[in-house]
Design a protein around this nucleic acid. Sequence first.
DNA 1: CATGAATGAGCGTTCATTCAT
DNA 2: AATGAATGAACGCTCATTCAT
Lengths: 194, 194, 194, 194
Amino acid sequence: MDTAALPTKDRLIRAAAKLFRTHGYHGVGLNDLLSEAAAPKGSLYHHFPNGKADLAIAAATWASDEMLRVIAASFAEAETFEDGATTLCFKLAKLFDLTGQQDGCPIGSTLFEGPGNAGFLEYADRCYSGWIAEVHDHASRFGLDAAEAGRRAEHLFLLIQGGWQLARARRSSDVLRSLPALLEMQPQTTIAPA
Amino acid sequence: MDTAALPTKDRLIRAAAKLFRTHGYHGVGLNDLLSEAAAPKGSLYHHFPNGKADLAIAAATWASDEMLRVIAASFAEAETFEDGATTLCFKLAKLFDLTGQQDGCPIGSTLFEGPGNAGFLEYADRCYSGWIAEVHDHASRFGLDAAEAGRRAEHLFLLIQGGWQLARARRSSDVLRSLPALLEMQPQTTIAPA
Amino acid sequence: MDTAALPTKDRLIRAAAKLFRTHGYHGVGLNDLLSEAAAPKGSLYHHFPNGKADLAIAAATWASDEMLRVIAASFAEAETFEDGATTLCFKLAKLFDLTGQQDGCPIGSTLFEGPGNAGFLEYADRCYSGWIAEVHDHASRFGLDAAEAGRRAEHLFLLIQGGWQLARARRSSDVLRSLPALLEMQPQTTIAPA
Amino acid sequence: MDTAALPTKDRLIRAAAKLFRTHGYHGVGLNDLLSEAAAPKGSLYHHFPNGKADLAIAAATWASDEMLRVIAASFAEAETFEDGATTLCFKLAKLFDLTGQQDGCPIGSTLFEGPGNAGFLEYADRCYSGWIAEVHDHASRFGLDAAEAGRRAEHLFLLIQGGWQLARARRSSDVLRSLPALLEMQPQTTIAPA
DNA sequence: CATGAATGAGCGTTCATTCAT
DNA sequence: AATGAATGAACGCTCATTCAT
């Protein structure tokens, strides 16, 4: 993705999304941001009057929307919920590899440590709810009742979050690809007691 | 837990574990650390010659050991794996509430953004492996074969990590208490302790 | 005084006069000025090509003219020089209270610290000379000879300047009301109007 | 006065006193201060934890004490109150010339525009009260009763403040030397009506 | 073993100004 | 005549670290 042609504001948002995700809110300086975005110092406050915090919200919004697109694309052509979930996890694994095997959840990295903590957490909650709702919708589309759809959507969300954490520590995307196997709950399977 | 009586080094470690977990590695300044630990200005580099990075490793070590203790205590008196997992999740929920409903994984918060990134991630991996191995051991003790024990241990780990993230965004420990229900994939099967 | 209906340029001048007087030339940013004046961003350099410095001169001019009007009004209906001086001091005390008990000499606050220091000081001198001349004229009108009129005019000027300083520190207008007593050096003498 | 041999903290205080007096609190940047004091950037916050505001208070304190010394020295060898007041005004005129003919009241310039405005004004009031009290003491020593001593002390204070303002605008110390003439209140003098 | 004074690079932010429209 | 987007220098301040004692 060549960002050089984008307007300054968008270059700032993408630079922020990228850097915050890897180094966390406090781990990224404005100078890092500005040089990554090839933007002059003064323009940050022109586009984001409240500075770094505003930019973090914008970056989180952009990253959250990207995630919604990945979810939608994964389930769009799926024939079962498991299919969609598997595609999603594999897509995320591929993205994890592409971005250097060191990125966690873009929302958490960006918003969990910010200064306007209360507002940041609230906004993270909204993003997460959006993701879960999107998965929920697809689960419903496959015929699951509301309770089961909700349960599965949250389960998948939690596994992905946990997967990001573990993949990051292991510097390996394999854990993300192994998530679907944990999601499959086949009531017909029995495990023999020891 | 009254930390006032502890030696300076331990007070520093606990202060670091507490603050890093909430605000992340870069979100905590040495002044914050020193004043939280009620430690004199110069003592940090006396006890931790490499400074903040050393302290972060020590804090992660301490936090990881605490987690191992919580895991051990949860499974010690359990009659089934599900029992132990449930106890663990409830204990973590309680701790989450006690520490202000804003703390995520103590290892990830402390080590994922550090400067010596490579070494930090490696160390995080070791901590995580230790947690999973501890759960694995208990699963084996309850008669699960190695593959199933590994699968369940990792599943629980991932759910807890995801649970911490979601609980943090929602500022609610409820999600942690709901994790065991997602873990039980074969409700009809009971597993006898070994 | 409702300034909303005034043209932008006048709103800028009054906003500048108000803010410079309280916070000093360097203590007021263009943003403060623009928002106090409810003026659009670009309009400052339209009306004042040399920017802040031009505006400061305009504000000082306006404030100086206001002071001349207050002096004139105070002496206009006076029957003696002391009468006029007393009225003036009481009017200034009232204005001091109305504007928040924190304002000093509008000229000094605006011009003494500016960047084009030489020109600013020269202009301040002209303003001050104007005030003293105005008082001198009234003193002459009451029959004082040139030397005595000059002496009294300067004495009153100095007391008012000192009074503004002390009133500001004490946040009290009382000192301004006490000035006439210091001016009266020959209580037994009455001076007939010319 | 060679300040090079003084400790860093004192060099900072003197640099601040000098620069604030000429350019005002907001007109002086930390870089100006630091280079005038030949001090490294980090040491300012070592000596003055609250930064510029702390330094301003320290500078005002030092300047106020200097003024008290000048007052004391002026009255110490005086034979009458008028003598002392005259010596004081002449000393101040000399200092005015020595420091570039552009300095006003060191307290007002430093404290009237600061950010911690309330505290700054309060402190300025205390300084001014100290000066007035010092003059009052000398007046009493010359046999004036409390009311007259207070009246004369405040009168002299106001004239000096006004004198500083006018001297600054005129870039001339003459006005300071003319103050004693205004202070002389000879009840026996009568002015003939016109 | 333990301390706190000292430091300069870098922080996030605001500044007065320019200029194309 | 009137505007607001854009800018880089400077702002006051905090940082992790060093070192003499």
